[in-house]
Design a protein around this nucleic acid. Sequence first.
DNA 1: TCTATAATTCCATTATTGTGGAATCATGGA
DNA 2: TCCATGATTCCACAATAATGGAATTATAGA
Lengths: 108, 108
Amino acid sequence: MEKDTALAALGALAQGARLDIFRLLVQAGSDGLPAGQIAGRLGLPANTLSFHLNQLRHAGLISFRRESRSLIYAAEYSAMNALLAYLTENCCQGNPGACLPPKEMNHD
Amino acid sequence: MEKDTALAALGALAQGARLDIFRLLVQAGSDGLPAGQIAGRLGLPANTLSFHLNQLRHAGLISFRRESRSLIYAAEYSAMNALLAYLTENCCQGNPGACLPPKEMNHD
DNA sequence: TCTATAATTCCATTATTGTGGAATCATGGA
DNA sequence: TCCATGATTCCACAATAATGGAATTATAGA
């Protein structure tokens, strides 16, 4: 991942309303949520929400699709995972056991 | 993790110089690096570096210890890991297989 | 085509943040 | 005690970001 991409993503997440929006979408899964529903759940004015959705979108953290009159936003998990990887890259002089939490196997 | 803590950490990382500093320390491991060496490697004026180290420290992402005339800074891995966990909390309606990368076992 | 709804864009105001020069503090050695 | 070194704090200026009112665009139904 490029540094600029990571910076854009971190900058997008470093704001209360946007962090809430992003986590809401992360939790919602790939079905996503229409803008109006996000505004309702978080109590944000439509234009303010729109501004923040744009920031998240430009940072590559969310995407949207139109469904009739609604725009449905969803988290971009690949961007999120790339960011997490960037932060921990080459940690501890290449000995990640020293700092990363023990990973578990998937159970599926 | 508290939202405010996550916001502080993200805000601290959402800046070019600080992202470089933090990643340098993550890579350096728990031995850490003296401020002067960080300044040298990243080409930052001492006072500017000091300002950024303070931001990272207040966000809980790094800590320091004195060793003679040097202050040695080191990444706080627990804070980093808590942040990563916060971002992915309850993802995909509790079905993380849908968005998180497959975890592997440690080999040690 | 007229109206209602969902959402966005434009704009001005306010607040926050980053930067580096100069002064200061802390430590250790002569 | 005096000096050199490593680092921080103080301060003012410049740049960037967040907010919400009003106007605008897109879609669908009567």
